[in-house]
Amino acid sequence: MSTPQTAVDITPPSPREMMRITLGLTIVCLLASAILGGFYLWTEPAKARNVAAREQKLISQLLDLSPSAEVQEIRRYLLWRGSQLKIFYLTPRQLVQFDASGKLLATTEVPEPVREASAPAEKDTWVEANSGANDEDDFRYVGRFFSGIEANQVAGYVIEGEVPGFKTWIRFFVAINSDYSLRGIEIIEHEEDPGLGDQITEPYFKNQYAGRSFDALLGIEVTKDPLPREWRDAVESLGDETGFSEWIVKYADELPSHPDIHAITGATISSVAVTDGVKRSLGNFRKRMDLVEDYL
């Protein structure tokens, strides 16, 4: 940084001076936290609304839902009592409870105010209160997925997943049909480097996952080969003009000749992270659905 302008004074400051410095810094930090806290309280509700609205929009796009369709959120919780594990699923109608082997333990009706609550924290508090967790237990929310309901039929699911990226977590949505074939993915939140890893949000990367079957996806690899021009044009055409359903039908025959995900650059950290994350989310989701499908 800059060189100091004044000569460096090597004698230690007097106790009085030290007190002044300590006090000054404390007051400045308190003021700063008060200002930031105030701004947080003021902006947080609007931010939460934006995030929720954006999620709804993405889910509708990924599942090609009509405006009248309904999106249901299913939240998943774990309760550890020592080494004993209980698993909870909160659906819009009921709270379903399993033990570690997948045996149904109990179901609880969800009361109206909790069902309508917009803040996730409200739902989590209610689940914890009804889970029988005491203070020593480790109770936590561990993830969620959405089901899109079109005319009383499940149109598809959207799984929220997280995977460590280059610096911090990459949060993404994986949209699938009810036969577990992939519709597409969407990156929700990330802090990958601008110009490099942040390209995971670009259509030419994220759309390469669209239309893969469950088995094809689990075997998918990341290649450093450059993305062929015509295939790049094809994956980039998915989006505003061509919806997911339409695109998948149109390019179904071409998908097998492009079995791999083409990485963004030769350094494949972000590309591999997203691919692993999508694979893991999908694999776990299939196992979990065996448990919870009947209660949706």
């Binding site: 700063a32 200002i35 947080y40 003021w42 931010k47």
Partner: peptide
Amino acid sequence: IWVSIMDMVLAAFFP
């Protein structure tokens, strides 16, 4: 402070 305020205000009102 300014960076955080910018971050919060943009996230809330200019998504």
